[in-house]
Design a protein around this nucleic acid. Structure first.
Lengths: 217, 217
DNA sequence: TAGATTGTTAATCGATTAACAATC
DNA sequence: TAGATTGTTAATCGATTAACAATC
């Protein structure tokens, strides 16, 4: 049903933020908002908001603005948050466990149905109501449950082989926390990267800029 | 010393990835590489690589290319990875604990020196050799140790007040995991956001696109 | 020297912003 | 109706790519 082929990733990446702000407004009981007001709130231009939204259709009304509840719901639909796609977690180390426990998957259109690890001391543990399974059962599980996506919280070294196994088991979408650019080797994979190491280095650069600016003035 | 005022954030955000790839090449024993070869490896254009690097100076040599070790080191310097800026963690819940244990701060120019939480059952716990302190001691700690940055692994509701306290205690740089756009309220703050919820929704959108494309063909 | 590859300028492309007619 | 605000087209801006002279 959704067909937004021509929409650029820069627009898509802004949608969750719109969704977040509209959700907040909704909680505060705001029923209508103009692009100008929303722009002021989010520190964007009104032009950009209207341009972004009109990639998906005209959700506003001239002279009135946008209905907050309706727009919130529309963006949720565009993002596909109502689909509850099944997802599995690979790697139940510190990060994997935290992601499993911390994230509200259901609110973001996903449903965690399996956790895998190859460390025997971790296998068998209960996390979020799921028993960590040995990675050897990955193929069996995928055949049976057909998960739509996988979270990669595994070390860089294990990433390539794991993705290879997942791809041939029919899992093509990845939330990738491993420091490995999997889209290079797997062209047809759908990848959303969270490279925490890269992000931390970017922070370091910014700290560096902040403190050396002072020195020079 | 570093003064890269005019360099756009799009360039900066690519530096950690260059650093990562050059590190890998270094490990493999590769000593020289041309922009064309590196571009092929990273799936970029050679033009972009040369353009990016020349924002900071001419690190290459005509007819030869780039020395891998030298370039790796240069980028590390630009990112400021040798500075080991002190950083503290706010919030020792699932995510905070995982970040503390999982990240190699030292390799990315940072040094974790304190962890704070206001949950009494968490205070006193040992994480990565640090004892979780009660948040009430935040100001005292900052006065004494002057941390340069803070990691925010706290709930959205607590974010505003916590940042206010940190800012007046002299901490201006943030690695923000909370679903709160702190740069809106604090204009002079330096912020690197990791909005996992937004990222997950973007993944959901992409899964949605991937599976509905199939339907339509 | 000849070949290769950089550094850098110019051309292209895409994304953001401004403007305004359409319309509620 | 008049005022407000959208949807959309046109103008601007920035980032990416191409081209090529400089040079190792």
């Amino acid at each position: 049903m959704p067909k937004h082929e021509g929409v650029s990733l820069s627009v898509i990446k802004r949608l969750p933020r719109y969704y977040r702000f509209l959700g907040d407004l909704l909680e505060k009981g705001v029923t209508r908002i103009s692009s100008r007001e929303l722009a002021q709130l989010m520190r964007l231009t009104a032009s950009q908001i209207r341009q972004d939204l009109n990639c998906f259709g005209g959700f506003g009304q001239q002279g009135y603005g946008y209905n907050v509840a309706a727009l919130h719901k529309e963006i949720g639909n565009i993002l596909g948050l109502n689909n509850n796609y099944t997802i599995i977690l690979l790697g139940a180390g510190n990060l994997g466990r935290a992601i499993a426990k911390h994230m509200d998957f259901e609110a973001r259109g996903l449903h965690l149905i399996g956790i895998f690890d190859n460390n025997p001391t971790v296998v068998g543990q209960q996390i979020k109501g799921l028993t960590v399974a040995n990675s050897t059962y990955l193929e069996d599980f995928c055949r049976e449950r057909k998960p739509k996506a996988a979270i990669l919280c595994i070390p860089k070294e294990a990433a390539h082989e794991t993705v290879e196994r997942l791809m041939s088991a029919g899992v093509k979408c990845f939330w990738n926390f491993s420091h490995y650019d999997l889209s290079l080797a797997f062209e047809d994979a759908v990848v959303e990267n969270v490279h925490l190491g890269d992000s931390l280095m970017t922070l370091c650069y910014q700290i560096n800029e902040y403190y050396s600016d002072g020195e020079e003035k």
